[in-house]
Amino acid sequence: MPIRLIAAYFLMITGSAFAIVTVLGLLRFPDVYTRIHAGAVVLTISAVLVTMGTAIYVWDFFLSAKIILIGIFFLFSNPMATHAIARASYKREIALPKEYEIDAYSDYLGRDV
């Protein structure tokens, strides 16, 4: 087996492990914001790792470039969507942020808006 395939499989397996960690976090965390945290951080790196592994696996210039473009799209879009969801759930007071002792975002909103 050439070393390129080994690197590709390593990246894909690492990405899949991060995806499993994401599912565990979604199931085990207590409320909305921590679940969103799991979905944002770990799922982004998982998708990027899997796309990088696929780009190494096919190893053709144009195909790899397209797949890496898809990975960059993930890198932009997933944190942005997560940010939008978290902000909307904060504004709608879905998970009662007053329960926490530290609520820095309300101070930020008081300064900004």
Partner: peptide, 15 residues
């Protein structure tokens, strides 16, 4: 939506 979403979609919408 917020400023971050507007900027990010400003980058992505032409694509």
């Amino acid at each position: 939506l917020s400023f971050i979403v507007k900027r990010t979609l400003g980058i992505m919408t032409p694509f």
